[in-house]
Write a protein that binds this DNA or RNA. Structure first.
Length: 191
DNA sequence: AAAGAGATGGTCT
DNA sequence: GACCATCTCTTTT
């Protein structure tokens, strides 16, 4: 059962990232960049925590990870491999250092804009990776710290009433060298 | 279908 | 100076 989309309730993000992560599946990631609105349904995420050797917050607060130690509901963006941007939703109480990496969305609006930004690739490959997702939605370091729960934010999360999948696919995270066994990757079942 | 390598720059030791 | 929470293209089964 779905309804009109409104910005995500910040209370949803108040828990630990590994508990919040599966709840973000099915929510809408929306960007309004350069006057263009693009929206995608979140279908793959990963949780990161301060007590987790794979996390950017594991070594403690630094200039780069400051947003992850900030209040929940804000965006933590970083530059990956000097080339791609990756976007995270900060969770848990302020000061904890936890976030959920947005790994993939299924575009539901602004496909033409995303296609142009991505170099006219096949629609299925427009936003099926953390770097691709940011490119498709136009998310970069300019959006560091953006409030995802603010309806006027250039990057936000909307809830149209679609419930998270009852049985998300769960497994180890991808592309990391430490904490490889922790099953904190969550995917919506294909369909 | 799978595996390998290069691109490219910020961050931290 | 090493290490990346990646992507794409090329080469090899």
């Amino acid at each position: 059962m779905t309804g009109p989309a409104r910005t995500l309730d910040r209370a949803v993000l108040a828990g630990p990232s590994d508990e919040v992560a599966p709840l973000l599946l099915g929510k809408l990631l929306v960007s309004v960049v350069g006057g263009e609105r693009v929206a995608g349904r979140i279908v793959e995420v990963e949780a990161y925590r301060e007590d987790d050797p794979a996390s950017h917050t594991y070594p403690g607060p630094t200039a780069r990870n400051a947003a992850m130690f900030g209040p929940p509901g804000h965006l933590y963006v970083y530059l990956s491999y000097g080339i791609h941007h990756c976007a995270n939703v900060v969770t848990a109480p302020e000061g904890a250092g936890q976030a959920v990496l947005l790994r993939a969305v299924r575009l539901v609006e602004g496909c033409d804009v995303a296609r142009a930004r991505r170099g006219g690739r096949d629609d299925r490959e427009l936003a099926d990776g953390p770097g691709k997702l940011c490119q498709a939605l136009g998310i970069d370091l300019a959006h560091y710290g953006a409030d995802l729960c603010d309806p006027s934010s250039p990057v936000r999360i909307e809830d149209d009433g679609t419930p998270p999948p009852a049985e998300p696919l769960v497994g180890p995270r991808i592309g990391i060298s430490r904490g490889v066994e922790t099953p904190w990757r969550f995917r919506a079942p294909p369909g």
